[in-house]
């Protein structure tokens, strides 16, 4: 994970849930209606909307069908 943008409450929420620079995230899947995504992060799973995830820039380390998280 390279860069996190976004402001205020959302950004703080990211950090509270452990989303921060240098962290390795793994895309697990999207919800059946395609919107919220399920992402694994170190020790747990989180759910995140696409609009929220688009504020995060990632670098692809392995494989990866979906590049833009």
């Amino acid at each position: 994970m390279l860069e996190i943008s976004g402001a205020g409450a959302l950004r703080r929420r990211f950090l509270d849930l452990g989303l921060r620079r240098g962290e390795v995230v793994t895309m697990i899947k999207a919800a059946p209606l395609r919107d919220p995504l399920q992402v694994s992060l170190g020790y747990g799973h989180i759910s995140i909307r696409r609009s929220e995830a688009s504020l995060i820039t990632v670098e692809v380390i392995l494989d990866g069908k979906d590049i833009r998280k």
Binding site: A9, R13, L17, G44, I46, S47, I48, R49, E52
Partner: peptide, 12 residues
């Protein structure tokens, strides 16, 4: 007021 951020934990 802004919608609450959705990002949340999916606890085991």
């Amino acid at each position: 007021t802004a919608e609450t951020p959705f990002v949340m934990e999916l606890p085991p």
